[in-house]
Design a protein around this nucleic acid. Sequence first.
DNA 1: AAAAGTGGCAACCGCCGCGAA
DNA 2: ATTCGCGGCGGTTGCCACTTT
Length: 346
Amino acid sequence: MAPGQHTCCDKKKIKRGLWSPEEDEKLIRHISAYGHGCWSAVPRLAGLQRCGKSCRLRWINYLRPDLKRGSFSPEEAALIIDLHNILGNKWAQIAKHLPGRSDNEIKNFWNSSIKKKLMARNLSNSARSNFQGLSSMNFNSYLIPTAQMDQVYIPPAAPNNPLPLGFDQVNINTNLIPALTSLPISSLDSSAYNLPPLAWMASEYHQPQLVDHQQQFIKQKDNSIFINGGPAAPQYFNAPPLMRTYADTSVINGLPKLCEMANGNQIGMYSSVPPVLEAVSKGFSGFPSGLYAPEMQVPAVGHILFIQSLMSTFNASSSHSQALPLLPCSRPFLLNPNQPSGWINP
DNA sequence: AAAAGTGGCAACCGCCGCGAA
DNA sequence: ATTCGCGGCGGTTGCCACTTT
């Protein structure tokens, strides 16, 4: 067999390259009538001079009737980024969560669009702290609030960082936040990592939960509270706690991932800034597993700002990359397909 | 207007795992 | 236990259209 040739392609007269409309028609007609069955038999049965593999690929990526086609919506793009954060380059698995999209399509979309935007974002973030424009953002309320993970992943803004336009910083009113009132500060020394101190909060289940007592609370001019740049969810104030589990640390692309469960359903998977995780693992041997704790909830607005920023560049008319607006944070984000009814729509 | 650069995308390549022989 | 065929997957290539210079 010639090198680089499939075992199913070792016959003569195997056509390669782009498919003609006539070939498409033959393949569609055959599979519509008989199904594909054994792919290696399809070319012969359909009257095509292609290898079975080529037929399969053409059908899966282009011809099958349930394909959606067209450009990706912002929601799809956000979901892809989210899933990629969980799964890495497992395109087939990612595609299972996007009806009508093939793994190849998603892979192409990632490699041609998202990846470059993310890299541009990371570059711009290295010189971030420009909060301009934050107050005028149109917040999307799809986000799952992820207070704990935000606290783990976001070092609070440095004191000399500029606040978003239109905001005033206020002192923390711990009366608003019962869960934070009796925080024992752990002995975890984050100073070596130039990180904010971390604290452990003992829940009623006597399990530790990682929190950050240096959250940035900001009172908007209408007196609503923003936390770490995002509006506080109603659950934050005297709402019943949501049960969550943090478990199943795994490593993808060299970065630890943490699974977040709520009421038995996986609602998130997070990666982290490596130095933070290093600090965490140094003191606690990795993320704690199987923790149950009530928690307050804070929309991770930085996430959605990030996505909105990203998507605004997708819709740009120029095919060339452009400078991304600087945002206060760039971290993994989640879209919540089942937005709780009580959530704020800022 | 033409050449060069760039992005999008379809298709190919090579590897892997699985099941049958 | 080994080999073989096959489906599936992720990485990569190459073409084409569009944009920029």
